[in-house]
């Protein structure tokens, strides 16, 4: 039972991810843009943040940087969920401090498995 924050601007994707996480028994918060996502993160200090990359008002990479440079989030895991699939994109995300990376189109089972793995660390 963990606190998970989902920052994703596509409503349909968000709905699916929220559903799966709730099924797995986690407490889920959602935001639809980067700026709001940061605010919610600071308020709740979640255990896991599932982050989209391409979003309005602060993209996911920036949010990732912000979270990693803030000592409050040292125990927060970050998983990027995005359609950006090139090797250099993955490198950049991991360099920015993401703990894992899932490419869209994605399997919700796989996403859940990776989320569970990150949360158990």
């Amino acid at each position: 039972m963990a606190v998970v924050l989902i920052v994703e601007d596509d409503e349909d994707v968000r709905a699916l991810v929220v559903h799966r996480l709730k099924q797995a028994g986690h407490e889920v918060l959602t935001e639809a843009d980067g700026e709001a996502g940061l605010g919610a993160a600071r308020a709740a200090i979640p255990d896991l943040v599932i982050l989209d990359w391409m979003m309005p008002r602060r993209n996911g990479l920036e949010v990732c940087f912000e979270l990693r440079s803030d000592p409050q989030f040292v125990n927060t895991r970050i998983l990027m969920l995005t359609a950006k699939a090139q090797e250099q994109d993955i490198e950049r995300a991991l360099a920015a401090g993401a703990d894992d990376y899932v490419v869209k189109p994605f399997s919700s089972r796989e996403l859940l498995a990776r989320a569970a793995a990150l949360l158990s660390r």
Binding site: D12, P105, F106, S107, R109
Partner: peptide
């Protein structure tokens, strides 16, 4: 319509 759109961004068992 929604189901067909969703099928576009998931894969595996979901799709």
């Amino acid at each position: 319509l929604l189901a067909s759109e969703t099928a576009g961004y998931v894969r595996g068992d979901d799709r």
